[in-house]
């Protein structure tokens, strides 16, 4: 059976090639990104029943407002802070917060632009009029933060990436973005170079170390540490990127439970229908 031999050889080669690929891929990855992979954090919003911690989102918002918002735009409406499934700030607080911003509006009847106090339906104003102005002032234009937690990921590699999708212990890993943000905020490890970051691809990050211990005052007794800030602001940014998360997971459970029961009923119905047919 010469054919069988050829086939066995081919298959053997394929397996060998696959093995070689796996070994070489880890080596190649090590060459390419020398930065360590972020570690997976515990998040309240992870898992099939995850929800946001309101107090954490409010603290994260405080960090954003006092620190991040000096350079980063957050292109979401102010009213969303009061929506269910988010920080759920009381309506009057949202109104007061909105009114503290000055919004350029117009043109009015006589064709002039004018300034007015913000309303909850306004978007958070951007710190710079355009990305070019931001780049001129800061050296590089800081990214908009509204989708930051969904637009950042890191390589998981084979076979981890398969389990990330599955309902297994340690699986259903969707929080790569917050983990990356958390890691970046911890990655400023060289005191002599504020633009060196362990986790940033290539290590040269335009943003200098943005947060230090005690920089933002917490009123709820939570420790005012860099670690806590990083967790809170990463949670806040994940909510900003995925405001429907709680609703999605809640409905998802009902939908899956319904389908599961329906599938069971259909299975037995099908069995009954086919019971007197050999197949």
């Amino acid at each position: 059976m010469t054919f069988k031999e050829t086939l066995t050889k081919t298959l053997g080669l394929a397996v060998a090639v696959a093995g070689l690929t796996a070994v070489a891929s880890s080596a190649a990855r090590a060459d390419e990104h020398e930065q360590p992979t972020p570690t997976r954090q515990e998040w309240t919003f992870a898992g099939p029943f995850g929800t946001f911690d309101r107090a954490q989102l409010q603290r994260g918002f405080k960090v954003y407002k006092e620190v991040c918002s000096n350079c980063h735009e957050l292109h979401i409406p102010i009213r969303t802070l009061g929506q269910t499934g988010g920080p759920e700030l009381p309506e009057d607080q949202v109104k007061a917060l909105a009114a503290s911003f000055t919004i350029k509006d117009g043109p009015n009847g006589s064709g002039d632009m004018f300034d007015r106090p913000g309303r909850p339906s306004d978007y958070f104003p951007a710190p710079f009029p355009n990305p070019e102005a931001a780049a001129t002032a800061l050296g590089a234009a800081p990214p908009d933060m509204s989708l930051l937690a969904k637009s950042r990921k890191y390589e998981r590699g084979f076979p981890k990436f398969i389990f990330d999708a599955l309902p297994v212990p340690g699986g259903m890993y969707q929080e790569l973005g917050p983990d990356y943000i958390y890691a970046i905020l911890h990655g400023y490890e060289k005191d002599e170079d504020p633009n060196w970051n362990a986790y940033f691809p290539g290590h040269k990050i335009a943003m200098g170390k943005p947060l230090v211990d005690g920089q933002v005052e917490y009123t709820d007794g939570t420790p005012a540490t860099l670690d806590q800030y990083a967790k809170d602001v990463a949670s806040f940014l994940y909510w900003a990127a995925e405001p429907s998360l709680e609703q999605r997971k809640r409905i998802g459970f009902r939908v899956l439970a319904f389908l599961f029961i329906l599938a069971g009923l259909m299975y037995f119905t099908k069995k009954k229908i086919w019971s007197n047919v050999a197949h």
């Binding site: 969904k150 999708a165 309902p167 259903m172 969707q174 997971k249 939908v255 899956l256």
Partner: peptide, 9 residues
């Protein structure tokens, strides 16, 4: 639905 509701991205 697993993908839609739990791992949409």
């Amino acid at each position: 639905c697993w993908f839609i509701f739990y791992v949409p991205n």
